[in-house]
Amino acid sequence: MASCVGVLSWSNSPLFVRSSDSERQLADQYALHTSLDVIEEKTSSSLTLHAVANKKVIEQQTRELYLGVLFATEKQKVFGYVTNTRIKFIIIVDASNVGLRDNEIRQMFRKLHTAYTQLLSNPFYTPGEPIESQKFGQIVQGLMART
């Protein structure tokens, strides 16, 4: 269903990228990277950092995590989702996949978020490091395979 799934760290570096088509991998990476422009624009207003007593405290306004369509081209649509800790999930869907509803995309993101939370609970995973978890990979594979 999804043609590419990407997880990007808070500092915008890629943690996990998987494309259904290995030939499109580079193009997908470019798409993920450029979609960050839109994510930044959409989230910049809602998140402010304050330094209080030498400790960075995050003041978070309530914000919808799901950002909707980041951009759409003739060939594909790019959806975004940003967690409260600024981990970005990006799902790229083929434009030919017209039957896809917004709700289904939301559901995919929720699954991804849950998988990420579980991954984070693993003491052997260091936050901010590229994701190598097989379990996470399987879940992503599931998102891409589902019809």
Partner: peptide, 15 residues
């Protein structure tokens, strides 16, 4: 290194 304020609550093992 850029510091991630969100990671302040994690104990990060050496890389």
């Amino acid at each position: 290194k850029k510091e991630n304020p969100f990671l302040a609550n994690f104990i990060i093992p050496p890389k």
